[in-house]
């Protein structure tokens, strides 16, 4: 049963505290520390500003938590969070090869279920990681408000909620792309290190190569660029969500191509992993 597979993989991940700490806690904690450090520096600047004549200082505005949340949602698919989430993903995807435990579980569940169970557990972990990052951003803003003695404003209306939801979903899809590359690498190589580093290397290579696209005469909205470089598709969709896209580009079908690119970069590695795993000799993990 798929539910059994997801439950057991999630439970196993919860017992692996080292991996959980690095994958889920580390980046939000560092981010929180950075925000608090920034608040402390801002407080010092404020104290220095207090000694200046009032006409030289600007009025102290309230802290807008809406913007904090939307800004954090726009940064969710950042390389640091992604890299540390990949630690957890690589561990989950390769653990049964590493500990030679496939033989304990393959006999009582179908292979597609076993793989989808792992994917399900990693997606849950990813959602938790993204949520923790957002929580760290909100907490950091709240602490900043206290340190700077500013009012906190939170008027999360329907429009903000929609934008936030779309940004969150987009970031999740972008991270899942890398997770699927990690899955495929783990199944093909049976190696945890490869499952961690191959998606990162692919990501870095794509980020570099996309800068060469203009040399080939491809614009950021061209289908070649969007399909080959899912990072460009992610950026295009983010821009659309944040409302910064000219109508002309939208009419060009950029959204459709970008969505297709993100979907392909998730589904193709996943399908290949599933196909390979279904035929894989698991007698020697």
């Amino acid at each position: 049963m798929l539910a059994d597979a997801i439950r057991s993989e999630s439970w196993r991940l919860l017992k692996n505290r080292t991996v959980l700490s690095w994958s889920l806690i580390f980046v939000p904690l560092v981010w929180l520390a950075v925000l608090i450090g920034g608040a402390v520096i801002d407080a010092k600047v404020d104290r220095m500003a207090d000694q200046l004549p009032p006409q030289l200082t600007s009025a102290r505005a309230a802290l807008d938590l809406d913007q904090t949340l939307l800004s954090a949602a726009g940064q969710l698919a950042n390389p640091a969070l992604l890299a540390f989430l990949l630690i957890g993903a690589a561990t989950v995807f390769s653990s049964d090869y590493r500990w030679e435990t496939w033989r304990l579980i393959t006999a009582r569940n179908s292979r597609p279920n076993l793989i989808m169970g792992k994917v399900g557990a990693v997606k849950l972990m990813t959602l938790a990681g993204l949520a923790l990052f957002l929580a760290a951003a909100l907490l950091g803003a709240a602490i900043k408000g206290v340190v700077l003695d500013r009012d906190l404003v939170f008027r999360f209306g329907g429009e903000e909620a929609l934008t936030f939801g779309l940004l969150f979903l987009l970031a999740f899809v972008r991270v899942v792309q890398f997770l699927m590359l990690s899955l495929l690498t783990a199944v093909l190589t049976r190696s945890q290190l490869a499952a961690l580093f191959v998606p990162l290397v692919v990501g870095v290579a794509q980020a570099f190569l996309v800068t060469l696209a203009p040399i080939l005469g491809w614009s950021a909205a061209d289908w070649q660029t969007l399909l080959l470089f899912p990072g460009a598709a992610y950026e295009a969709l983010k821009t659309v969500i944040l409302g910064g896209v000219p109508t002309a580009v939208l009419q060009d079908g950029v959204v459709l191509r970008a969505v297709a690119s993100l979907a392909l970069w998730s589904l193709v590695p996943f399908s290949l992993a599933l196909w390979w795993f279904s035929r894989q000799d698991l007698s020697k993990e």
């Binding site: 597979a5 057991s8 439970w11 196993r12 304990l104």
Partner: peptide, 15 residues
């Protein structure tokens, strides 16, 4: 990293 009991709990969930 699992205890003996946790191993059996994990496998019971998996099965």
């Amino acid at each position: 990293y699992m205890t003996a009991r946790q191993v059996l709990e994990w496998l019971a969930l998996a099965h």
